[in-house]
Write a protein that binds this DNA or RNA. Structure first.
Lengths: 235, 235
DNA sequence: GCAAAGTTTCGCTGTTGAACGAAACGTATC
DNA sequence: GATACGTTTCGTTCAACAGCGAAACTTTGC
């Protein structure tokens, strides 16, 4: 044990160290919605100079948390994978059980619905997953989450575009744990595609800034027709 | 957004800083199986002096990651909650997708079956959850995971002690994501109780050191009769 | 009560690394 | 080609903190 245990110890410490700096944490959170951003913008988001930001980005890159896409004189940084996004969710979301930090008022919209890398998370994401499971539209199997034909029909009937929706059949999703709700929602390719379809249909829109997703009144009605219930709006 | 975003940034950084020190990481990992250990033992596990360990434990305690139980001249430290345990799982388990670290040979037993706080995780945990779902013994609902009467009967028929097994009906479990498998297994009170029952029945035993759980040949046979299939033993 | 054991507090030293400005580099624009 | 822009590299300064030994504090055992 001492062998693998001591390896794990350094592994954990290294990962922790990458997150331990507010400037780096801010950059990662700015990328948590799955977008790619140039170094200068991340420097601004972190509140540090360009030189400092560059050093931080280099560390995050070498640590495997970020990827980079070079385009001309810009370098667009993005999260390396949805695993990293899930990790950020697990660590940074306003949590209830941990005594550390309490959710602030400003976080309410974020808790209700947000993009987690590219798919819908938050109360609404969990509620939707619950509803689809309960009505037998979605199937949990060992290989992943699969939308059934009857589910696709229901989505089309609720108003999702047909060509869009039919592609969902061929995608499989991954369970993704919502750390504030401590419950499951749909991630992976299927989750991303469903979320994209809902955005296109106007059921949701991205908040002007940040990762929050705002459901429209129409969207809530249509989701309701699928059995999705969420608590009435709180303050 | 800048309000809650900047709050989240410091929150994330603080949590990262607590994990960023190999000595602290080692202590947390030593407690990841849910046991409570005195300060001196943790100092030894971390490879630092008693004074240093005490300072680290104080920080972890104030950070909300640990709890302490004073008994005479001993102070027994433990993880503050299963949330913390899940976080450690997410960050420290040998992962496949993140480029950071690859699993070493010594980790194989750990990947196969281990205790996550108090319940069974790893390939075996995931396979068991899959099997119970597939046979209709376990029900996913929004409130949590619930074992059905037919499932309890099956467990008793497979050899679990009757009085033990019947208590499982009254417990509800939580989905817990296995980060190496990226799939769900049963945690929460139900997961803990099922694991305890399997340990008592001799299907599993704790490894002499570390968090690995070793299934017995008999245990594997009995689990197999419940539909639990895992890959044949690798090297 | 006195010695031993477990733990924490205090004071000190040494290392790490975050931040900035200046300068260098590469790419787009005129 | 000259200039402006985005980014990285270099060198420096400064603050944070991990580690240890010594001492203090508390509980146990004789």
């Amino acid at each position: 044990m001492s062998d693998s245990a001591s390896a794990n110890r350094y592994q954990l410490a290294e990962l922790g160290a990458l997150l331990a700096e507010p400037a780096r944490a801010a950059m990662l959170l700015a990328l948590a919605d799955g977008t790619a951003r140039p170094a200068g913008e991340l420097a601004h988001a972190a509140g540090v100079g360009a030189a400092t930001a560059s050093a931080h980005l280099k560390r995050l890159l070498e640590g495997g948390l970020l990827g980079v896409h070079v385009q001309g004189r810009h370098r667009y940084y993005r999260l390396a994978s949805d695993e990293v996004a899930a990790l950020l969710e697990a660590m940074a979301m306003p949590r209830m059980a941990l005594p550390l930090p309490r959710p602030a008022g400003a976080d309410l919209a974020l808790r209700r619905a947000r993009s987690c890398y590219r798919h819908l998370a938050g109360e609404l994401g969990v509620a939707m997953c619950d509803a689809l499971l309960e009505r037998g539209y979605l199937h949990t199997q060992s290989a992943g989450l699969q939308l059934l034909p009857v589910g696709v029909e229901a989505l089309i009937h609720a108003g999702l575009e047909e060509t869009h929706a039919e592609k969902l059949l061929r995608l499989s999703g991954r369970g993704c744990l919502d750390w504030t709700e401590r419950r499951l929602h749909v991630g992976g390719p299927l989750g991303v595609a469903m979320t994209t379809a809902m955005l296109d249909a106007g059921w949701l829109r991205r908040a002007s800034s940040g990762r929050a997703l705002v459901p429209s009144a129409d969207g809530l009605r249509r989701l309701g027709s699928l059995g999705v219930r969420i608590d009435p709006q709180r303050s």
